[in-house]
Design a protein around this nucleic acid. Structure first.
Length: 317
DNA sequence: GGTAGACCTGGACGC
DNA sequence: GCGTCCAGGTCTACC
């Protein structure tokens, strides 16, 4: 008998808004079904892969229907992974604190950002988003799942585990998953993960200074200043920006700034200082607002059409 | 500490 | 349809 789990989110939680809030909701093995307003995802659990379809009931509760039966231990793990992915673990009080710092988002209720079920997946997804156009990031993640991920009973693929990627040959990742020169860096990152050299509890601990986290992350293979900033927001640390070329486009087109990239970086830092510990969220929702002004609400985006159109040339039109 | 150039892929563009 | 150019962030070597 396939398992169905019920998850009670914070009272202000809206699945369509809070899941469709960051580009990773468009990357395999994540799915969003605009027609039914449901999310899909294959999770890697102790007993193998299991696909879940998640929707929100009129009561506000989330329902996750799996394609196989999960034992008690797997149910606990599935809850933990889904909570992280959906942002259910971000309490209402935190979203309200963000709205006090930046009231522009109070009306829409935005405050949560979609992320992956695991930090490892967030790290690899970030590496696949560096130095590449968005359509290539989509391809890399799809192929990583198809080539390296476990298959669920209903046929979808999970994201590969650290153990699986640590065993992979770099050339296989390059030729079959199209990750290019990122091949060895991905394998090295997975090996560090397997060896326990990446301490998620320490990285997530609010008591750990942000500068220490940033320094550690930039010491990892394939992770530079942009990737470290992005991983930090995925860790729930929103006090610093992740500056890439999209940031410069945003600075020029939306914020009306001018100058060299170095000058823009400085201006962006000064502008977002006003939002204190929430500066990444303020930055991100401005960016997301711009995308939605061009493409319509994110929860209406079709993965294989709208979802693939985020290229620099399209956005600059 | 700052910077130039290589890395790899695929979209955009010109013919 | 084909060939060429270029965008994209990190890393290494060099000054």
């Amino acid at each position: 008998m396939p398992t169905t789990l019920t998850i009670t989110p914070p009272g202000d939680y809206v699945l369509a808004r809070d899941f469709c809030s960051y580009g990773y909701f468009l990357l395999e093995p994540n799915h969003w079904e605009p027609e039914t307003g449901s999310a899909g995802r294959v999770l890697h659990l102790e007993g193998g892969a299991a696909a879940a379809v998640i929707d929100q009931r009129p009561s506000g509760q989330l329902r996750a229907r799996f394609d196989r039966s999960l034992d008690r231990s797997e149910q606990g793990e599935a809850r933990r992974q889904l909570s992280r992915m959906l942002g259910v673990d971000v309490p209402r009080s935190e979203v309200e604190a963000f709205h006090r710092a930046d009231p522009r988002w109070k009306k829409s209720g935005r405050g949560r950002l979609c992320r992956s079920p695991t930090l490892f997946e967030d790290m690899i997804k970030t590496v696949t988003s560096c130095n590449v156009a968005w359509p290539s990031t989509i391809t890399m993640n799809r192929r990583l799942c198809e080539v390296m991920g476990k298959r669920s009973p209903s046929g979808g693929y999970a994201f590969p585990t650290p153990r699986r990627l640590a065993r992979a040959k770099p050339m296989t990742l390059r030729s079959r998953c199209r990750v290019g020169y990122r091949d060895a860096r991905i394998v090295e990152l997975a090996k560090l993960y397997v060896k326990g050299r990446i301490d998620e509890a320490w990285l997530s601990d609010p008591a750990t200074p942000g500068d220490d986290v940033f320094r550690f992350l930039t010491s990892l293979p394939g992770i530079g200043p942009y990737a470290a900033g992005n991983i930090m927001q995925l860790l729930g640390r929103y006090d610093r920006l992740a500056i890439d070329t999209e940031s410069f486009r945003h600075a020029r087109v939306v914020l009306g700034m001018d100058g060299t990239d170095a000058q823009l970086s400085k201006q962006l830092a000064e502008y977002y200082d006003a939002f204190g510990d929430h500066r990444f969220r303020s930055y991100w929702f401005e960016l997301w607002d711009f995308y939605e002004s061009r493409k319509g609400p994110a929860h209406t985006w079709e993965k294989h059409t709208t979802g693939t159109t985020f290229t620099a040339s399209q956005l600059n039109k």
